[in-house]
């Protein structure tokens, strides 16, 4: 029996790759407590890692003086996460498809694709420096 009360949290994180470790652990624990499946937890974990790394590397361009804002709400049936960096943003339509033959052997550029594949709703703000992503709890098969 997991908790049914929605939980919301907002945190300002340093712009370095390992800075989201603790909040990520907390999110995964909340999901587990609410009976989310291992597939849901894997999906949210992956999307969160990819979104945070994108914010640090591509958004804030490795500038440790910048910050990343992370907000989440977890309820009984969905988890919503928002990651905001202090960069110039990007145009989603200009992101090359890593599955195309010319890009298949490139060692990077798969984060956005994975976020879209594992989350049910993904949208960016107009500037492109904030991503909001939602995953709905799957019913057990």
């Amino acid at each position: 029996m997991g908790s049914q009360t929605p939980v919301s949290y907002s945190v300002v994180l340093e712009s370095r790759p390992s800075a989201a470790e603790e909040v990520c652990r907390r999110i995964l624990r909340e999901l587990e407590d609410r009976g989310y499946s291992s597939d849901d937890i894997f999906a949210v974990h992956l999307a969160l890692e990819e979104a945070f790394i994108n914010a640090v590397k591509h958004g804030n361009k490795g500038d440790m003086g910048k910050i990343v804002n992370l907000e989440y709400t977890i309820s009984a049936d969905k988890v919503e996460i928002r990651v905001v960096d202090q960069g110039q943003g990007f145009d989603l339509t200009q992101v090359p498809d890593p599955r195309c033959d010319g890009n298949l052997f490139k060692p990077s550029g798969r984060g956005v694709l994975l976020i879209q594949a594992y989350m049910d709703e993904v949208d960016y703000n107009e500037t492109g420096n904030a991503v909001r992503m939602v995953r709905y709890k799957r019913r057990p098969v």
Binding site: F42, H45, L46, E50, I53, F105, P107, S108
Partner: peptide, 16 residues
């Protein structure tokens, strides 16, 4: 049990 897309990059570099 878990990896990020950075590992895929590693594999591609090793493969090359």
């Amino acid at each position: 049990r878990f990896l990020s897309s950075a590992v895929l990059g590693l594999l591609l570099r090793v493969s090359k």
